[in-house]
Design a protein around this nucleic acid. Structure first.
Lengths: 394, 394
DNA sequence: GCACCTTGCTGAATCGGATCAGCACGTGGA
DNA sequence: TCCACGTGCTGATCCGATTCAGCAAGGTGC
């Protein structure tokens, strides 16, 4: 099937390639010899500890010059063995980097790591606990300074004992027990409050309905996002004395369930606004509303969570509270490295960092943003092609 | 904006966390002492070199037992320092892991690396040559066994000298000079041949037109895919004595250009089949054909390259030759590790590995696959949501 | 009875940098 | 004149594995 073919005449290239063992790297000892000083002096000079260690400016300059001329680059492995720090962070995710979600998570982590002069060791467990443990030990054995364990959706993770060997941060997850381990998660309940406030501010006092979770507790199994979003929504509505006009829980948050749930809802009440618990539910809701001859946002406003790439593509464009993946990834690295540097000494034992979920105001809420687009429909393939290219957040 | 809040009462958790320096790791010396033998004997026993090094079965068993009981795990950093190998591969891509392209590339690389007991150090250059060099040196200094340098689209890369320090493989790219460095690329010209053969086999003798590149050489600057796809197409057509009925080159391969190019084409000729040089062009072509009242595939067949996630979503579903990202990533690691193990000794100096691009037969070519879907349109949001979830290739 | 080989193991060097303890020299004070 | 102290550097050890060279005990051949 696949095969090796030859693009150019390179008969001796393979030989050259095999032989390119490259000239051996320059070591500190060689630099020291070149500068005519001891290895100790050279080490201190290059480490910027000359003054502290009483190395004269002349010697320091000689060492620096020798190092530069020889093209000296310290061997990180050796340094790592001695100091126990590798300037490397492990990033283990439970799903593939191929989803936009994981991709942006990694992107943020990568950027933040680079800013702090760290490299990222990446692996995926595909949800296999055995593999997860193996990958963690593989990374720890390689001397990573810390580990980030990322989950696709916010949930509780059973922390394997091996994870406690090094500083670790859970990304988008909480420890299932009371392990003293930090978490970085989206601020779901604040997002819920934000959604409720947005609806109230745009004049939706009555007729607010929920699609995806209900106060009676119907929601996807183990979804922390569901309960926190619901909490946030209800707390704001309660404070304003507003009652939820209706709600339908869904066991799964896919478009089909959104369609079905909204249909059932419409059979009972006439909503003025729909809070969908994620965008995929909202896609289904759009269809159910269209089928019922209801216009978004003129007849019914729709607001939702996640900011799926398609949310800005369906018509009217969906107003939603975004999951800040890039920021989540960046924050995980930040928290981990801060912890390593001992910069994180909260006296109150705070272990959870919540990242704000920004509201993306678009067209699906009446009286908010750029209205005037009538009828639920979809954009063209051309527009979609543009929408599905991902961009770095502002 | 972001803030630390406390989910549970964990007043002393932070302390615990700070103190969790963890019990020190067990070293080989300790295992040796426990087994009552020298460190040398222990090392040989655990390395599986007992017989070779004349360690008695009894001693070997004692060592193995002691190691297991103590929970011994060799320190990879130390081993790396001594042996010069780290069981780690660096993966540097010029664009972000957030695109489906890069994501699948990484996915394949990750899987293949794990199969060979290697870990992946990942970084992105964002096209910055300076950053690229820094990241390469950072990885080399950490003792990676080899480097994979990936490009978003097939092109020539100027190989920085530092890259020659360790074995390296270019993924989706060729060296700009004659550097003895291996490449893993999609087999574009075979894909071109495959497209032409498919068209001929389904009865399209005349009226074959090209959108995106023309034999006169109009194509995106520096796009190797363009010339190779074209080569493949023309060679098969030529062998069958078939002339290209028309062609329009495009400087950029986006939907807008596909639309425009197809319009111009339709003004001159009446095609029976359109070969679009990528799917995004095909999206535009679909629209131009629909505008002209032409049905796909009844009036005009459309075939294309890349297998964009949307290709299976637009109607009629687009027949296209897929870029095998997962396989490309996996092959890059495979080639690199094979090279490291000295398993790659082609006598003819072959340095390019071409990965087959599989044809995805769908509905846009007349007389091929499941026809009968009339009219160019788009699927529903529900269908799209399903289509844009990515799956591992079969 | 002695050279010689095999068996079964150990000592010590090595990888490359970080760092502690200490040494030689000069200066100042008593 | 002698001691104390600061200055400026070096030797040696350590991190934790791998591996080469070699050594003692026991067996074999002649």
């Amino acid at each position: 099937m696949d095969s090796y073919t030859r693009p150019w005449p390179l008969s001796r290239a393979a030989d050259t390639l095999a032989k390119s063992v490259a000239k051996k790297r320059v070591t500190l000892a060689q630099v020291a010899r070149a500068a005519g000083v001891s290895q100790t002096a050279a080490s201190y000079a290059l480490a910027g500890r000359a003054a502290e260690m009483r190395i004269s400016p002349e010697v320091e300059a000689r060492v620096r010059l020798a190092a530069r001329e020889a093209g000296y680059r310290p061997n990180a492995v050796s340094r790592s063995l001695r100091t126990g720090t590798s300037q490397t962070v492990g990033f283990i995710s439970d799903t593939v980097a191929t989803t936009a979600f994981a991709g942006h998570l990694i992107w943020g982590a990568l950027d933040q790591a680079r800013e702090r002069d760290h490299l990222l060791l990446i692996a995926e467990t595909e949800g296999d606990p055995q593999l997860e443990r193996e990958l963690m030990t593989a990374m720890l054995d390689r001397g990573v300074d810390g580990l980030i364990v990322a989950s696709m959706y916010t949930r509780e993770i059973a922390v394997p004992p091996v994870l406690m060997e090094a500083p670790a941060v859970l990304l988008n997850a909480f420890p299932v027990g009371n392990e003293p381990i930090r978490s970085v998660v989206p601020d779901e309940s604040e997002a819920g409050r934000s959604v409720a406030r947005t609806l109230l501010a745009s004049g939706h006092a009555g007729g607010i309905c929920l699609v995806g979770a209900s106060p009676e507790g119907h929601a996807p199994e183990g979804s922390l996002a569901a309960v926190q979003r619901l909490d946030g929504i209800l707390s704001v509505l309660h404070d304003s004395g507003v009652e939820v006009a209706g709600s339908v829980g869904c066991a799964d948050w896919q478009p089909a369930q959104g369609l079905e749930a909204t249909r059932r809802l419409l059979a009972e009440v006439t909503p003025s606004a729909l809070v969908c618990f994620n965008d995929r539910l909202a896609f289904g809701a759009y269809q159910a509303l269209a089928d019922a001859g209801l216009d978004v946002p003129e007849d019914v406003s729709v607001i939702s969570f996640d900011d799926d790439p398609l949310a800005s593509w369906i018509r009217p464009r969906l107003t939603t509270v975004a999951l800040p993946h890039y920021e989540l990834g960046a924050a995980a690295v930040q928290v981990l490295l801060d912890q390593l540097e001992g910069r994180l000494q909260e006296p109150d034992g705070t272990l959870v960092r919540r990242i704000t979920m920004p509201l993306r105001v678009r067209e699906s809420v009446r009286g908010l943003g750029s209205d005037g687009v009538a009828g639920a429909s979809v954009g063209t393939a051309v527009e979609l092609a543009a929408a599905t290219r991902m961009h770095r957040p502002g």
